[in-house]
Design a protein around this nucleic acid. Structure first.
Lengths: 200, 200, 200, 200
DNA sequence: AATGAATGAGACTTCATTCAT
DNA sequence: TATGAATGAAGTCTCATTCAT
């Protein structure tokens, strides 16, 4: 448990940034140490091994970094929303809008999630969050009697797919906003309680 | 454009089958020619290169093969359904049930689709199909005024995710049926027209 | 369990020979795949990996090869000797004389044994052989009441050291013969029964 | 030729101690600067390179350190013995008993001697000592008409092997004493003059 | 139609050493 | 005196592909 030097933090950050960009541009499969080193302007792959315990360690650092960036954008918007339905909407819409701000990070994250698979705590974390949200939301009358797990699975995957497609070819901000609203509408309809009472 | 001899067809089929099994068991990343050759009982990878133009060619053949298998299961069920909503439901339910019949093929296909990415005609084919389905369905009053593209994207991805999860750890047939129905419900609600009139 | 082609056997033998020579000249530590490949006139280290499962596999093949060579030289001489003492003498003398015939193999084997350590069955095999020889020899009145294990350990190591030194700078045949006889005398004296009766 | 400050001496000693322990535990091959630095609680390998001219220098320092420790144990016992035979016996027995006192140092030394090879002055020093001892001992009538060099070579190697085996799995003190005596007997018999006169 | 051999690039990792601070 | 950063070579191994037979 050693404190990190300024230089080390800087190098680590530089390498992580390079890795994210490489993954975004060339894909997870092509994100080799050589490619990342070249992209980062490093003379050798040994440098990366020096700063990271291994490939897994580097990729974990990438995920963490991206999650910080995306969290900083999305979390305030989600927190500002009141009620389960509004929060679901805020999550979806801010996630789609995020594409306009950090397309590379988004592309990389989605590729990481796809390939790193279930190892990463990131995916399962969000999945569990959604699941719990649908459960408590149903109790509060915001959602119908859903199979929370299946619903969470389907909607997070659907969200990812839309976001990934948008990130691959970033549209105008207005179009992005429209897509986000459209998708949120879709999800809200999908999860709405059958009888239209006075939810929350 | 030379006709294929029987032997050649046999060898190709044998290799494709081995490749599918390897992908299902070890994942796309580990599906190297050596591994596939070993699984197929071939003594060298040269055999594979001889029968397929390259790795991409082999993978494409795998996708085609799997699609035939899955199509044979799903298509009759979809054709038997009348109306846009019922067809959507049939697609979803039969796809989930398919997991019980061909888990390996499903696992492989999903891995292929994830990694082969947007190159594959398969994904885009289904996507276009869904898109068109939502468009014509709206015109027929079966679906609401959806953004067909976004909806198709989200729902196919959501379906894949549920199927992939089920395939990774195949549940009882009854549970599979329940999940399929649950998911179909979700999708039908999501795409339903707002005013409950007399759709189709 | 596939039969080996002529070509494959040839290549394997060629690589093993190169490996033995490299180990003899540069030592176990420096015997890298690149060095061996270069010595064998191969264009890449991949070739070695193609024919051998790994470094361990190659080294094992080297040991086997060397044991065949040395066995072919020593075994007849040992078998020709009658009685425990004469056999011990034959072993020692033929082992030392062997240096004149196959210095490289001897150098390599000793380095392999030193570094591969107790993994190899070779060392322990010979050790057990000596141990058993001293035990049965004692029962037959040829040797004194020795601690068979300690004796076997000390004498095999002593033999190796003398052989290794000779192999490092091969002397004239006559001198080699003299050293072998001297060493055999030493060992025979060391293991002789205290009372000089009529052994065997 | 600059005198060493106290701190420098301390650091050097610390590193040497760590190196010895690493070699004893993990073996010569695994004793990399990183591993040694980690074991010594140093944060970088640079520290080692700073204090030692190179790897060889460090290893030489290890050998020197170990020889001091072993010398302190063995030398008094050897000096206390009177006559060539008794001294040979004292050397062997104290060396084997030493295993009970400093197993790590012994393990490390043996690994160093094996791998550092003939470069080290240590081995050749002891070898020359033995050789001279046998020569003068013969003149004094204590030993037979031996080939001093060959005998020295064989016996030192035999001693090392027994010691190494004991060090790898340290036995009870009594057993250690027994092994030492057994080995000394072996060596005394091996070197005894043929006619039993009045040696010394 | 098939095969085994060969290729060369590239993967990740570890190493001993140097150097500026 | 000490340190962390950087280097570049070398390590073993796997890969998809080509080619002569």
């Amino acid at each position: 448990m050693r404190a990190r030097t300024f230089t080390e933090s800087g190098r680590r950050a530089q390498i992580v940034r390079a890795a994210i960009e490489v993954i975004a541009e060339a894909g997870y499969l092509k994100a080799s140490f050589s490619r990342i080193a070249k992209h980062a302007g490093l003379s050798s792959t040994g440098m990366i091994s020096y700063h990271f315990a291994g490939k897994e360690d580097l990729l974990k650092a990438c995920v963490t970094e991206i999650e910080e960036v995306t969290g900083a954008f999305m979390q305030p918007r989600i927190d500002a929303a009141v009620g389960h339905v509004a929060q679901l909407r805020a999550f979806v819409e801010s996630n789609v809008e995020l594409v306009g701000e950090h397309p590379a990070e988004i592309r990389a994250l989605i590729d990481l999630v796809k390939n790193a698979g279930s190892q990463s705590g990131a995916v399962n974390g969000r999945l569990a969050l959604f699941e719990e949200h649908f459960r408590t939301g149903h109790a509060a009358g915001a959602f119908g009697p859903l199979d929370a797990r299946t619903t969470a699975l389907a909607l997070t995957a659907g969200l990812d797919a839309v976001v990934a497609t948008a990130a691959a070819n970033v549209p105008e901000p207005a179009e992005l906003t429209r897509i986000g609203r459209e998708l949120a509408d879709l999800f809200v309809r999908a999860t709405a309680p059958e009888t239209t009472g006075e939810p929350e």
